[in-house]
Amino acid sequence: MALTGLILFNVANSIAVLVLLSLGLGVIYGMMKIINLAHGEFLMLGAYTTVVSTNAGLNLWVAMLIAAPVAVGLFGLLVERLFIRFLYGRMIDTMLATWGLSLAVIGLITTIFGNTVRGVAAPFGGFAIGGYQTSLYSLFVIAVAAVMAAGLWLVLRFTRFGLIVRATMQNPNMAAALGAPPPQIYMVTFALGSALAGLAGGVLAPVSGVSPVMGSAFIARAFITVLGGGPAIVTGTGLASTLFGGISEVATFLTTPVFGQVALLLAALIMIRILPQGITGRLLRRSL
């Protein structure tokens, strides 16, 4: 019984981590059809912001939940202005350019902070499920993921900004004709996606080693989740996270974490063969 509880908790945690990792990417991809290959580095920058500002004496919660998203959001804004905006509509070129950005950011951070692993101590202690001890921080990660997904959904569904964003997503020309200039919407959305990535990086900093190359550990999962989810940002990412997170956690439990990732990839390959447009490309098409 306790073991089942533990596994369920781990599955939930694994799903939450996937949601955190991929929501920022999903916003940018869903809105602009841009696959941001520097997404892992955006997460990494969020994590570094958290580490650096905590070391500078900032409260961990402020660093994690405010400083990280703001800093990375501003960085995303800068990136969008500097070169993404010249590449709209050229999907492969944006992938290449953001990949170049990813390498450059890794190089820059390595130059500044050195190629070492840093970390911040995870707050809270642990709690017990039956005879098993587990981390209370995981519960916090789950909560943040849930709040993030729900918040994004509420914003997209009920605010004026959300309405404009959805309209631009459906038909940019029509939105422009009605007075919502797509370039501005894209700029804001890119910054929003970056901020979400920064927040995710900050929240995951205590549970993962913070190093210049930490992004590459995350991006494979993030990409698979976003592509598997399909066009609907929140629902798609949520469903794909649930599916892939569940599969990888069960495989991890049965074998090793690495083969958990392999199982995740195989599941994604099979799903792309069956549902090339992602889950929400076929099912629940009108969701958000």
Binding site: L87, A97, S102, V105
Partner: peptide, 17 residues
């Protein structure tokens, strides 16, 4: 002085643009 990744990344961005 200069990190290889930094240079390669910059080259990639510059050539794409």
């Amino acid at each position: 002085a200069v990190n290889a990744n930094l240079v390669l990344g910059a080259i990639l961005v510059v050539f794409v643009l």
